[in-house]
Each structure stands twice: as structure tokens, then as C-alpha cells.
Amino acid sequence: MSDSTMFHGGTAESNAIRDNYLALARRKQMYSGILMVIFIAMMVSGFRLADSRNAGGFWNGISQIFEFPSEVLAEGIAKAALIPALLAKFLPSLIETLNIAAVSTLIGAILAVLLALLSTRGLARWPRLIPVFRRMMDGMRAIPEIVIALVLIFILGGGPVPAMIAIAFHTTGALGKLFSEVAENADLKPVEGLSSVGASWIQKMWLGVIPQVAPNWLSYALLRFEINIRASAILGFVGSGGIGYDLRIAMQWGQGRYDEVVAIFILLFVTIVFFDQLSSHYRNRMVKGH
């Protein structure tokens, strides 16, 4: 009873508060509404623009979307007996693609550890140079892999090395930022303890910081490895090296070699799914402890 009287017969003050709240809520709704309208307008006009600048239209293409896959599949099924031999034939290329991803992740992660420690407040060897190392990582992150890969192919010739350097470069920047964010939250007490016994900077980092952050760093590096497998396949297609390159050759040949395309698709799909599951399994174990 008293509740309802308070609610209905509110003083002028509480009425003012209520009006104020409702006005605020309405304004907030209006803002969200405007944002929504702008977003939808951008999506629709963007879609129409992209559609008009595309060689084949969207609606025309959507009806043919299954033509190419069914063509490839039909040939794959017709030559199903050859597929196992082709799988074995492309296995070395697949291993090369995986090697590119693994080495670039490894080198990128080692450099990222260095850059991350040098650019983390409280841990840096030269605190004044923190902004320099941070901008360096931003720059490395911003350069798309394809740019470095294509330029290096011009200088170094084909093969897996340009792709490896390109991916390692980008990985350094990307992992460095993530590593540094993890290291920022590290407990500084072990570092202080080590300084009190006169440890050098390398000893402080190796014994005081790295054991704390290693699980998170490893989990980011695993995630990166998975991303780099995809990147290495795609760089092979655009540039050279690994299974991507074989895929481009098979695609250029077109009909008659679709059995090779099928084999490469299978290899790529299985590999990506396998490493995806493997990395998410280990990441869960490392970060959550189960």
C-alpha cells in the first residue's frame, strides 16, 4: 500500500527524475536508431556499389554458385581411383606449406618475445625507447604479408623463403603486441627479488617473467600458427612455394586436372581442421588448466 502511494503520489522531485530518465532513455533510443539507419544505408549502398563494380552480378552469380564445385566434384568422383596417388604426390608441397608456417611462427615468436619485453612498461631494458619499439611493432603489423612476399620474390626468386620472411615479419608485429599486453599484467615481485641478488636484465626476464607468461604466450603462438598455415597457403597461390602454388598450376590447367584440385582441397581442408582442433585443445589446456 505504502509502495503504491509512494509511486503514484510522488513528489515533484521524483517526477522530475522520472521525466529526466525517460527523456534520457528516449534520446539513447534515438541515437541507436540513427546509428542503425546509417549502418543499414552503408550496407545497402556498399552492396549495390560492389555489385555494380563486379564483372558478374550477384544475383546472376548466386544461381551458378554450384556449377564450378559440381564440375570439380564430378571429375573428382570420375577419377576417384587416382586421388590417393595424388594425395601422396602433393604431400611434400603440403609439408613445405606447413614448414613455412612453422618456421615463420617460430622466428616471429622469438623476435616478438624480444620486442615485447623491450616495449613493456616496468620490464623494458631501456624505458625511454619503449615508444620506438612500439611503433616498430605497429609498422610490422600494418604491412600485409603479400607486399613483402611479392617484393622478395623479385629479389630472391621463387621458393618458400620469400613467403617465410613475409609471414615472420608480420607475425613479429602481431605477436609482439599480444605478448606485451600479457607481460604488462605479470607480477613484478619475482623481478624485484632477482634484482636484489644482482641478476642481469636477461636473467631477470628469463627467470622472473617468462615462466609467468609462458602459457599465455604459447597459446597466442599456437593460434598464430594456425593463422599462418592459411596465410602460407594463400601466399603460395599468389606468389610461390608450397601447396598454394600447385593449386594455382592445377587451376590454370582447368578441366582435366580437377582431380588434382580435389586432392589439394582435401589436403588443405584436413590440415586446417586438424591444426584448428589441435591448437584449440592445447590452448584450452594451457590457459584454463583443463
Partner: peptide, 9 residues
């Protein structure tokens, strides 16, 4: 293959 070259693809 279905949509041809361009940004939509």
C-alpha cells in the same frame, strides 16, 4: 568462378 572478378567476390 561464379561471380567473376571484382569486389563482390
Amino acid at each position: 568462378r561464379a561471380f567473376g572478378p571484382g569486389p563482390m567476390t
